Amino acid sequence: LTDEELVTMSVRELNQHLRGLSKEEIIQLKQRRRTLKNRGY
Score class of each variant (00 low, 15 high):
V7N: 04
E13G: 03
Y41N: 13
E25M: 11
R33A: 05
Y41I: 10
V7P: 01
S22E: 06
V11R: 15
K30T: 08
R33G: 01
R19P: 03
R32F: 01
K23V: 09
N15E: 11
R12Y: 10
H17M: 10
E4P: 03
N15H: 12
R19N: 08
R12C: 15
T35D: 15
D3M: 03
E25G: 04
I27H: 12
D3Y: 02
I27W: 11
K30G: 03
E4T: 08
R34A: 14
L18I: 10
L14G: 00
V11G: 07
R39N: 14
L6D: 00
T35Y: 15
L14D: 01
G20Q: 05
K23S: 08
V7M: 14
E5N: 05
V7H: 04
R12L: 09
T2C: 04
I27Q: 13
V7W: 05
R39H: 12
R33D: 01
S22Q: 05
Y41G: 11
R32N: 01
E24Q: 12
L18F: 14
T8W: 06
L21R: 08
L21G: 01
Y41C: 07
L6M: 02
N38W: 06
K23G: 06
Y41W: 11
V7G: 05
I27D: 10
S10Q: 03
Y41E: 13
N15R: 15
G40E: 13
E25V: 11
T8H: 12
L29Q: 03
G20R: 08
N15A: 13
L21D: 00
T8I: 07
S22H: 05
T8R: 15
H17S: 05
G40P: 08
T2Y: 02
Q31V: 09
R39A: 15
I26P: 00
S10D: 05
L21C: 04
E13D: 08
S22L: 05
H17R: 14
R12W: 12
R33T: 03
T35E: 15
E24T: 10
I27V: 11
R19I: 12
L14E: 00
I26L: 04
G20V: 04
L36A: 04
V11W: 15
Q28K: 13
D3S: 02
Q16G: 06
R12T: 10
M9T: 02
T35I: 14
L14H: 00
R33I: 14
M9D: 01
L1N: 00
R12S: 10
G40D: 12
K37N: 05
M9L: 07
Q31L: 11
N15G: 07
V11S: 09
L36W: 00
E5T: 05
K37R: 11
K30C: 12
T35G: 07
E25R: 05
L21M: 10
H17V: 10
E5W: 05
E25K: 08
D3A: 02
Q16I: 13
V7S: 07
L18K: 02
S22N: 08
L29V: 14
S10R: 03
G40N: 08
R34N: 09
G40I: 14
K30W: 15
R34P: 01
L29G: 00
G40M: 11
E13H: 05
E25H: 07
L21F: 07
S22W: 01
R12Q: 12
N15M: 14
N38G: 09
R19L: 10
L14K: 00
R39T: 12
L36Q: 03
K37L: 15
I26Y: 05
Q31I: 12
Q28H: 12
S10K: 04
E25A: 09
L21K: 12
N38R: 09
V11Q: 10
T8D: 06
S22A: 07
L36Y: 02
V11Y: 13
E4N: 08
I26W: 05
K30Q: 08
K30H: 09
L14N: 00
Y41M: 11
N38S: 08
M9S: 02
Q28R: 14
H17G: 02
R39E: 13
G20T: 08
Q16H: 10
H17A: 13
Q16V: 10
Q31C: 04
I27C: 13
I26Q: 15
I27E: 11
R34C: 06
Y41H: 12
D3L: 03
E13N: 04
K30I: 15
L18S: 04
L36R: 01
V11H: 12
K37E: 06
L14M: 05
I27Y: 11
